[in-house]
Simulated assay, not measured.
Amino acid sequence: MRKLCLDMVYELAKEDPRICFIGSDLGFGTLNQFREEMPERFFMEGVNEANIIGMAAGLALEGKVVYVNTIATFITRRCFEQLVLDLGLHNVPVRLIGNGGGLVYAPLGSTHLAIDDIAILRTIPNMSIVAPADEAEMKRLMPLTVDYPGPLYIRLGKGNEPILTTDEVPFAIGQVIPMRQGSDALIITTGVTLQAALEGADELAQQGIAATVLHVPTVKPLPKEILLDYISTIPVVVTIEEHTLMGGLGSAIAELIAEANFSEGKRFKRIGLPDVFPDKYGSQADLMKRYGMTSQQVVAAVTGLRKKQLAFFK
């Protein structure tokens, strides 16, 4: 996913002289063609993310569209003040490309796990957040980022995720992608947990439970009206994300439901990382299984909520 994303930055830059790239301590071979063909718009800086964000903001204020790339934890935690004051406050077109959103860097431990990146950036006015599910969706997203207004965070997965999205539903920043249709339960997801959501919906279908699956690649600005249309008609809602339960997609949906004041109550559960630093090493898949970000947990959450719902009406 990262290679495709950066390759597309290069292709877009060949067509648009406004586009610049800034990397933070990336491998020397990263975007070699960009470096060789457009050296005046290519910058490879060291481990100084706060300075890089200021640099990107300055270029953007001079009319450039700037793409910044490094590990997701470094591009969100290390330079939070600059993200707020240089990007958010000035509302400039800087695109933050975060490598390894979620648990991708599991072998490196908690220092490299971007489990809070969405929560951090949701707090910044004018900041938008997108989390593609696969490389096909990334390819549809990138051309839309060039002229998108204001700062934008692009959350990258590990790469080589199964291709689950299609061109059947036109992709747009700020829209939801319906992947399954059903009236018994609603499963809402973003990024690479779309796979667990779809597998969970398939297992539920075998039990006679028809679930709608909504992929929400744009976590901010959240497509509230579309989501409310779906939530209003379905009694059971479950969210799943590769992120802490504090402040991510599930929190955004909970806020939406709480303020909607539906005449009928909703049964609701969030699936994600609990309020802990992951205490085991291993692979991304290992940690997702350990903390329940799986299709099995989706099934358990939906069936558990449905039992409570049915018991209430007896």
Rank of each mutant, 00 (worst) to 15 (best):
M44D: 12
I209S: 09
E241P: 07
L186I: 11
M1S: 04
F34H: 10
F74L: 09
E259I: 07
I53Y: 04
L310Q: 15
Q297L: 02
L4N: 09
A50E: 15
G272H: 03
E37F: 13
R2G: 01
I124S: 01
T166K: 13
I231T: 06
Y67Q: 02
I71S: 10
A136S: 13
I234R: 11
E255A: 03
V94P: 00
L227D: 05
M288N: 13
C79I: 07
G27Q: 12
L214F: 01
L31M: 15
D184W: 07
V66Y: 01
L186Q: 11
F42L: 06
M288H: 09
R180M: 09
L31I: 08
I234A: 08
A258D: 14
S283Y: 02
G248N: 09
S232K: 15
G100L: 07
L144W: 01
T165S: 11
P149Y: 00
G29R: 09
I120V: 15
A311K: 08
Y281H: 14
V169N: 12
L4M: 14
P107R: 11
D147Y: 06
Q175P: 00
V68C: 12
G150R: 00
A136C: 10
P274Q: 01
I187G: 07
G109F: 11
E81G: 11
I173M: 01
S283C: 08
L249Y: 04
